[in-house]
Write a protein that binds this DNA or RNA. Structure first.
Lengths: 239, 239
DNA sequence: CGAAGCATTGAAGTGCGTCAACAATCGTGG
DNA sequence: CCACGATTGTTGACGCACTTCAATGCTTCG
């Protein structure tokens, strides 16, 4: 099950057999969490990291006045709170969007394997830096892209990220978010997210039906989004 | 001169005399860069990190269609491209907003000191995670705050960050950005940034004059921004 | 001293928000 | 398996925060 995580790591860099053993040995156990739960609450102390093995999670910040902004979506293979290893508490909530299976990586063991193996430390450091790169792309979207281009951009990003872990097929991918949750990613109201979705479909680019994103015109979609996948750092690196 | 960087690090955690020596020994030299230059261009390969000793820099992404979004502002003490240590190339530009003095930290030496000292690796990892936390707060601003609240939020953030490195006084702080650059941080047009600035002044909260931000009503400003500084992780940590 | 960038203002337009109603779907218990 | 309430999705009418366009004065600096 944790293989999906190793698959993600290995997509970008070499992980030796020794390192794989270290990672597998550091995992404390896995469990299932119901949908729509707050998994980590903003401000809570953390003493372990969480590998998402299946399902979707979001990271979001709320204003006191109630508005919510999702800052990143997480899918199988991702560590959803790795930044908590150094930060110790998070500045945002982590929530389950679907039922999720997660594995636990206690900070204690993460400390051991990253102290004993500087390369592994850099591999995980790299992962948090990719999260930051995704945040920057979202800031670009929120600040400069129109609603439709922003939505297109999100669908492109997810397509790339999901294909790395084998969660796409020729047609598209499972996308279990409600329109409300989607709108919270895009800084839109539900109403406008709904109309934007219809416009994407009307243009023959994407359709979202039965929790499945069907990509009808990939290059048209990427063009509308002005999508440049380099921020995902999916090519091989010497870390 | 590099003391300002150590000051920033020590604000959050203990740096031993040995570690200070390691850091000082890793610095290759310092130099001055003119204002309004692209310091790192998106996609360029990096082989060193850059400590900003004085002046201001920005990190920004441009869309092919020309719009620019600034994703973070950097001030004295910050490392402006530390994520490049693991990413190797950046997904955005780093630009000087003023004349800047920088010190160079070759990746080679960063590799030595972080491999030899896992705590130091975590200290720098922590710094990149704080950058990510700042990105998330900006995403919240861009997605959910109104123009005026967003601008207030930025002024609050900078006040906190600058006070850590002793760049504030009782009145406020030097703020060398033009209104165009400010507007690029906030996802606004220059025209609207100008009007928003006037509204902040009219409400008696902040005024920006002669490249100086004068904070007239700090708690009023923080209230308008719904500002919660915890995302800056300025309290002491056990890293 | 002139040119170029920067700040400011006004008028008009628009993308997205707000409000409100209703339809479709889902989940749960009887 | 149906009933029914709750959640999710959809639509229309209207409003407004912010953009766009355009003009003018103000700085800055070679």
């Amino acid at each position: 099950m944790i293989t999906v995580h190793l698959k993600k790591l290995r997509h970008r860099t070499d992980i030796s057999a020794d390192e794989e053993r270290a990672i597998r040995g550091a995992v404390a156990g896995s469990r299932t969490i119901a949908a729509d739960e707050i998994f980590v609450r903003s401000g809570d102390e953390l003493n372990s990291a969480t590998i998402l093995l299946s399902g979707w999670m979001s990271r979001s910040k709320d204003l006191p006045s109630g508005e919510r902004q999702v800052t990143e979506l997480h899918v199988a293979g991702d560590i959803v709170d790795l930044h908590g290893f150094t930060l110790k508490r998070l500045d945002h909530d982590v929530m389950t969007l679907t039922e999720c299976v997660v594995a636990t990586l206690p900070h204690e063991r993460l400390l051991e394997i990253t102290s004993g193996n500087p390369h592994l430390a850099r591999v995980y450091w790299f992962q948090t830096n990719v999260d930051a790169a995704i945040h920057r792309e979202w800031a670009l979207s929120l600040g400069q892209r129109s609603a439709i281009s922003r939505m297109a951009s999100l669908f492109c990003e997810l397509h790339m990220r999901l294909s790395v872990v084998g969660r796409t097929n020729g047609e598209g991918y499972e996308f279990p978010l409600t329109q409300r949750e989607l709108s919270e990613c895009l800084g839109l109201t539900v109403v406008h997210a709904n109309r934007t979705l219809q416009e994407l479909r009307r243009r023959g680019l994407v359709e979202l039906e039965n929790r499945f994103v069907r990509i009808l015109d990939r290059s048209g979609l990427e063009g509308l989004a002005e999508f440049d996948p380099s921020y995902l750092y999916l090519d091989r690196q010497r870390i």
